[in-house]
Amino acid sequence: MTAVTATSIERSATALPLWAIYVVLTVLVGVAMLMSLVFGYRIYSLNDVATALFASDGSEASTVVAGLRLPRAVLAPIVGAALGVAGVLVQTLARNRIASPDTLGLNAGASVSVVVASAVFGVSTLAGLSLAAALGALCASLLVFGIAAGAGGLSPIRIVLVGVTIAGLGNAIVYVFLSINEAQLQQLLFWLAGAFVDRPMELAVNGAPIVAVGFVLALLLSRALDALQADESTAASLGVPLFLIRGASFVVVSMLTGAAVSMAGPVNFIGLVVPHAARRLVGLSHRRLIPAAALIGASFATFADVVARFVIYPVEAPVGAITGVVGALVLLVLLMRRAA
């Protein structure tokens, strides 16, 4: 490759060397997780936290930290990472930096699947729901891309409009079930906004491997994804098997989105803003973008989860509301600066 291509893709956008960036990001995730254990309805000291984790003494602090907060502190980064990486892939696939799993209706598709699976088919196992969510996300992504591409070219506006419509449809279907199931209304609403609270540790334990596999697959696809950033003909002439790569990417996106939705419900906007931040930090090469997006997504989700505890204290806000507001504000800024 010529020096020009190498520098434009590989150059890091900040002055720090790559390894330093990764270290900082990882530390950030750790800090976020720690804060997630410390802060909440009650604020516990680091001492309490340490006791709860390593020498549980049955005190209230220990129960809360180990029983309630720990699952959240583990779940949030995993979901955040999954959605961050999914966001990168979606934006590359759609050749559009404003695409994301939620605006393209993938989250909605997963939600519908979960709601239908539990209400109609009575599925209640975590594995079952995860599968349903993944299938829903996959169907939605195929629908959106298939339709948008159908009438001659993946124009950005077409993709976004189709995605918004599919998302709207998904929400409508979900609302049907909501109206029918008024008893579970509050619960469902909360879940539908995306929440890490009241989730058993098993969710994280079951979901983590899926996310890990998705992450690895995404990394394997990075070279091909780099080529995909060019237009169709160029990518094809570079020897990229477009259909295969796209298909594989859809599957990975669905895995990641599906896992995230089944773990925490549809958390919006993480997949939209995290890729932008990642691009700013490490440039455009997917080999760097994907790990960076995972780390940034992890800390974003975890920090949002902490904030969610305090916004309407003492009541918990759904984390999706926080990511929604922050994400939307970031999107607005990006749009106003014409950076998106």
């Binding site: 918004v164 759904p318 509301a321 929604g324 939307a328």
Partner: peptide, 23 residues
Amino acid sequence: IRLLLFGIAVAAVAKALTLVLML
């Protein structure tokens, strides 16, 4: 398309606030 995107952003903020208030 820009208008659409601004609409999505504003809608998202409104949706989030609506959700919080409903809860």
